[in-house]
Simulated assay, not measured.
Amino acid sequence: MYATPTVRNAQSAYRDNAVATASPARLLVMLVERLVLDVERGLAAQRAEDWPQAHHHLMHAQDVVVELESSLDVSAMTGGRELAALYEYLRTRLVVANVRRRTATTEEALGLARQLCETWREAAMTAAAR
């Protein structure tokens, strides 16, 4: 069933409000959750051989990783350089998965994205508990 314009507007307002009121840690978690979703959707599209949709989702996943890279201050945290290298590796795998249409590479990227997501969730929960 398709959402009516009123429902879509309400959903959009809810998302906008959630982003506007989220803590920096929650915003980071939301971003990596979106990364996982994009890679999952890209993989599903690849498996269906829907190459335009796969491209769309994998490009958005690459954009998310670029945002993660650009917001990282490697000198402000222990392991910052290693995290930057992981982001770069993930972005490169997403490019290869997209250009070469390799589901195995997309699956590898998805595994990395899920691990990142879980790590950032745990970190956010730890920070919130303090």
Rank of each mutant, 00 (worst) to 15 (best):
M1V: 04
M1I: 02
A3F: 06
T4Q: 13
T4V: 03
P5D: 10
P5C: 11
P5N: 10
T6A: 15
T6L: 14
V7H: 07
R8Y: 04
R8L: 11
N9P: 00
Q11E: 02
S12G: 03
S12V: 01
Y14S: 06
Y14D: 02
D16E: 13
D16S: 12
N17M: 14
N17G: 13
N17P: 00
N17A: 15
A18E: 04
A18H: 08
A18Y: 04
V19P: 03
A20Y: 07
T21L: 14
A22T: 06
S23N: 07
P24M: 06
A25C: 01
A25V: 00
A25T: 01
A25Y: 05
L27I: 03
L27H: 09
M30D: 03
L31P: 01
L31R: 14
L31A: 11
L31Q: 09
E33R: 08
L35I: 03
V36W: 00
V36C: 05
L37H: 15
D38A: 13
G42V: 01
A44W: 05
A45G: 09
Q46K: 10
R47C: 03
A48M: 10
A48H: 13
A48C: 09
A48L: 13
E49R: 14
D50C: 10
D50E: 11
W51F: 15
P52C: 09
P52N: 09
Q53A: 15
Q53N: 09
A54Q: 07
A54P: 05
H55R: 11
H55E: 08
H56M: 08
H57K: 06
H57N: 13
M59F: 09
A61I: 01
A61T: 04
Q62G: 12
D63V: 01
V65S: 14
V66M: 11
V66Q: 15
E67R: 15
E69V: 08
S70H: 15
D73N: 11
V74Q: 14
V74S: 12
V74F: 07
S75E: 11
A76W: 07
A76I: 02
T78L: 07
T78P: 04
G79T: 05
G80S: 01
R81S: 06
L83F: 09
A85T: 08
L86G: 12
L86T: 10
E88Y: 13
E88L: 13
E88V: 02
Y89H: 14
Y89W: 09
R91D: 06
T92G: 11
T92R: 15
R93D: 03
L94A: 13
V95T: 09
V95A: 15
A97K: 10
A97Y: 07
V99Y: 12
R100T: 08
R102Y: 01
R102L: 06
T103A: 15
T103N: 11
T103Q: 12
A104Y: 04
E107K: 13
E107W: 07
E107M: 07
E108R: 11
E108K: 11
E108T: 09
L110M: 03
G111M: 05
L112C: 08
L112I: 08
R114D: 00
R114V: 00
Q115Y: 03
L116A: 05
C117L: 03
E118I: 00
E118L: 02
T119N: 05
R121I: 00
R121T: 00
E122T: 02
E122A: 09
A123P: 05
M125Q: 08
M125I: 00
M125W: 01
M125G: 03
T126K: 13
T126C: 03
A127D: 10
A129E: 12
R130G: 10
R130F: 04
R130L: 03
